[in-house]
Design a binder for these strands. Structure first.
Lengths: 112, 112
DNA sequence: GCCATTCATCGTATATCGACGATGAACGCT
DNA sequence: AGCGTTCATCGTCGATATACGATGAATGGC
């Protein structure tokens, strides 16, 4: 029987939202972050991780109408974009948002 | 000889940024807009159209290192997402940003 | 040690993306 | 009418995305 644990992890993270430099790189960076959120499931995952500021694991799988492997791939893409971070906690893996990357994304979008 | 015209068009547009309703639809909408900006070229195009608040046509082609047909496809995607609008002006087509869609995108991202 | 649980990865199939050249449609001009 | 310009669309190619089931690696509990 799976237990829905809301273990708190990923404590300090990085309070440093690095700013982009030249225009082309800013475009590329914005495009990369936008691509990571170019799928409803990934938007939902990010929102989940923001809400329960603690981290979740397979709770995400229960929340989405997708197979476990599919969710794992979406998590991988979000992690590759730097939007979330996952660290192993026993048999499970704890994911949480990377606040710096999210705020950088917000800043880039606001700067449009 | 092509002339770089900065004709002003797309005047009033819509001052109405409609707000999303339920969560799933908001996610889908955000994903759709993010997908439209999931490529550096499209980000660059949108920025171009924002800068020269007048509209541009093949000036975009000159600005990007892409073939004319490729740029046309990117414009099509941006238009399908509702981020820009194009209206025919004689032999050329005038594109401009859809301010409502852009601000909706900003609001959705800010609400993450 | 052995087994169940949890998650990632692999392999696969289908669909879409991104790029280009070539073609086609619409318009202005002479 | 005919021509050149401007832009969209078509057809094609390789690469990537999305989804799934099946398999594999790591861990905790018996």
């Amino acid at each position: 029987m799976p237990a829905a644990s809301t273990s708190l992890c990923c404590p300090p993270a990085e309070p440093t939202p690095p700013v982009p430099t030249d225009a082309a790189e800013a475009n590329a960076h914005l495009a990369r972050l936008a691509k990571a959120l170019a799928h409803p499931a990934r938007v939902a995952i990010l929102r989940l991780l923001v809400q329960r500021e603690g981290c979740i694991v397979g709770d995400v799988v229960d929340e989405l109408p997708l197979a476990q492997s599919t969710v794992s791939q979406h998590l991988k893409q979000l992690r590759a974009a730097g939007l979330i971070r996952g660290e192993v906690d026993g048999p499970r893996v704890c994911y949480c948002v990377e606040p710096g990357a999210v705020s950088l994304f917000k800043a880039l979008v606001a700067g449009l």
